[in-house]
Simulated scan of single mutants.
Amino acid sequence: MAVQPILKYPHPLLKKMAHRVAALDEPIHTLVQDLIDTMQAGPGSVGVAAPQIGVGLRVCVVDVSSSRHGKDNNHGLLCMVNPEIISRSG
C-alpha cells in the first residue's frame, strides 16, 4: 500500500469516464488502501478518487473527521465503490 501522486487538472485522464468495478477482489482492496494512504498524506485532504491517482475506476474514499467542518458530525471513513447519485436538490 502506498501514497500515490495526485494528477492535476487538466490532465487528460481526469477527463475520461471511469469504469464500474466488476468484483471486489484483492486489486480493488489494494486500490482502496492506496486511496486512503494518499488522502491521509495530503495536507487538509478529505477525499480522493481513483481517477485522481490515474486509475479509471469508480472508487473513492472520504473522511471529514479531521476537518474543522466535520469533526463533530461525521460518519468516519467512507470507502465507496461504484457510487451513484440517486437524487439531488437545491
Rank of each mutant, 00 (worst) to 15 (best):
M1A: 14
A2L: 12
A2T: 11
V3C: 07
Q4N: 10
P5L: 02
I6S: 00
I6N: 00
L7F: 06
L7T: 03
L7I: 06
K8L: 12
Y9P: 08
P12T: 01
P12Y: 08
L13Q: 10
L14T: 03
K15H: 13
K15P: 04
K16I: 09
M17H: 12
A18H: 09
A18I: 07
H19W: 12
R20L: 15
R20T: 15
V21N: 08
V21M: 09
V21T: 09
V21W: 10
V21E: 08
A22E: 14
A22W: 08
A23V: 15
A23R: 15
L24Y: 11
L24I: 12
D25A: 13
E26K: 15
E26N: 14
E26P: 11
P27D: 12
P27Y: 15
I28H: 07
I28D: 06
I28F: 13
H29M: 14
H29S: 13
V32F: 08
V32D: 01
V32Q: 08
Q33L: 13
Q33R: 15
Q33F: 09
Q33N: 14
I36D: 00
T38M: 04
T38G: 05
T38W: 01
T38D: 03
T38C: 07
M39D: 06
M39K: 05
M39F: 09
Q40Y: 14
Q40L: 13
Q40D: 12
A41F: 06
A41E: 10
P43E: 12
P43R: 11
P43I: 11
P43L: 10
G44A: 05
G44K: 03
G44V: 08
A49L: 07
A49W: 05
A50D: 03
A50I: 06
A50L: 05
P51Y: 04
P51D: 02
Q52R: 06
Q52N: 00
I53M: 06
I53N: 00
G54R: 04
G54F: 00
V55E: 09
V55I: 14
G56D: 04
G56P: 09
G56F: 08
G56H: 11
L57D: 01
R58Y: 08
R58N: 07
V59E: 00
V59L: 07
C60F: 15
V61S: 01
V61R: 01
D63C: 03
V64N: 08
V64K: 07
S65E: 00
S65A: 07
S67L: 08
S67K: 03
G70D: 00
G70V: 00
G70P: 01
K71W: 11
K71H: 11
D72Q: 08
D72C: 02
D72R: 05
N73W: 10
N73A: 13
N74F: 01
N74Q: 05
H75L: 14
H75T: 10
G76R: 00
G76L: 06
L77V: 00
L77K: 03
L77M: 09
C79R: 13
C79K: 14
M80E: 04
V81K: 02
N82Q: 06
P83H: 05
E84A: 10
E84R: 13
S87N: 10
S87Y: 14
S87I: 07
S87M: 11
R88H: 13
R88Y: 15
R88L: 14
S89D: 13
S89Q: 13
G90V: 11
G90R: 12
